[in-house]
Design a protein around this nucleic acid. Structure first.
Lengths: 250, 250
DNA sequence: GAATATTTTTGGGCTATCCTAAAATTTTAC
DNA sequence: GTAAAATTTTAGGATAGCCCAAAAATATTC
């Protein structure tokens, strides 16, 4: 079988590099890959052969490299692991960008499915639980540098309570909106999905379901497509799909 | 140089195994190591030679294996990485023991110094910040399984505020005590270290300093020695050292 | 103390990764 | 349209890690 052998860490790195090079330059040449990965180009040839054997890349000598649909799937999976780890390091552990990136590179090959899913859930929980929230996360950054809690604990918790009340009040006023009304960078909690049949299935298959956090990354002026991130996955939604997703902005 | 070459992941595993086998059985034979690691004993021979070359184990053919002081240091470092990761997975991410153990095994070789320190700080912060605390952490476990926050958010925060008040009141009553008064399993925040000169230095060198969280693991009836965990390190303190460490029980 | 059992080492093989250097091919420049 | 430059591939060598089978060393048993 073509795809039966499991991937080594280095082959995953190659796949990731091919994805990124192809995304940037349109097509991947061996030289770009070797430059990006800082290896000799003969190593790239060897890796490409191994990936082609597994059915993950289209490769012919002296030709450009592309990912097969299977290879694209695996690459996306590796990249998701990378991004989830990096987000966790940077957003939660308050590690700086470069360090987070580097750490994610090394750990993406070692993290298990279950732990990754838990990390995603943890980040979502942190962002949606009023007792934590972004203010509290920032507090950890301060704690790291100074070794003491940022401000008076009582005041901190009181503020937290106030914010909850505010949130409650606006919730009573039914401010649930469609995903299409969010601006890039905004986060929200999915409340319901109002769409029929196949669209509904397509959307929920990708992890978009009530309770999950969703973040808008980019949106065309026309509102089609909308790029979002849910559970660490990047998705591109059509306007009609986005319209049916009812959210509660955070 | 003996110790100049860096260690591969598998050599770290061998070092870890040697440490544990030696701790359990008093001495490490090649067979015990191969059994524990589920590898062929000829692989063990090869690994032992590599470790001896780096000055990390005392090894002579057909003889028992012991760690050199250097090797002991490296083994303890690897084990700390393992334990910090496992604690994080189990305590914070609410992953079950087995999964946490397995995940730590794989990731201990990939985690960087800085990220590890941040994880330690994060766990400490979680345990010492009133806005988080153990109740809140349990809340995440519930969120994972049910997808919804455990209880009414307002009530949760109010309880949190109450607990803080209680903590404040008892703090006014000056309940700071010596480390020696804690029972095994208890956690506390270090408030001050009252000891002179060399003892003070020995203790602070090991990471025991005001602001850090400390946990008592075991204590002899006589109170000497006291085994504690600080910043992911296991330490054994003499009675006079423990006496001088003033803590605030959590 | 000799025969047997166990443990450890040696020797040979396999895979994966990387490198350098040389050959093959494609691209570019005139 | 061909020669030079750049790129890619092949070939050969190195290291690391793992395995197995068989030999060597050590322990155990009678």
């Amino acid at each position: 079988m073509a795809g039966s052998k499991s991937l080594t860490a280095s082959l995953e790195d190659y796949l990731e590099a091919i994805f990124h090079v192809a995304a940037e330059k349109g097509a991947a040449r061996a030289k770009d890959i070797s430059k990006r990965m800082k290896v000799n180009s003969s190593s790239v040839t060897g890796a490409l052969r191994a990936l082609a054997e597994r059915g993950l890349v289209n490769y012919a000598p002296y030709d450009l490299v592309t990912l097969t649909p299977e290879g694209m799937g695996v690459a996306e999976d590796v990249i998701r692991r990378h991004e989830v780890l990096r987000d966790f390091f940077v957003k939660v552990l308050a590690v700086d960008e470069a360090e987070g990136e580097e750490g994610a590179c090394k750990m993406e090959h070692a993290v298990s499915r279950n732990i990754l899913e838990r990390l995603v859930q943890y980040i979502d929980f942190l962002e949606s639980c009023p007792r934590a929230g972004s203010k509290w996360i920032q507090g950890f950054g301060h704690y790291c540098n100074v070794g003491e809690n940022a401000e008076d604990c009582e005041r901190c918790i009181t503020l937290c309570l106030d914010e909850l009340k505010k949130r409650r009040e606006s919730a009573e006023g039914e401010i649930n909106v469609s995903l299409i009304d969010l601006k890039p960078g905004q986060k929200a909690k999915i409340v319901a999905i109002k769409s029929r049949g196949s669209t509904n299935k397509r959307v929920t298959d990708m992890g978009v379901e009530p309770g999950a956090m969703i973040e808008v990354e980019r949106a065309a002026l026309s509102g089609d497509p909308v790029d979002v991130k849910v559970k660490g996955y990047h998705l591109s939604l059509r306007k009609d799909e986005a319209l049916g997703i009812i959210v509660e902005p955070q």
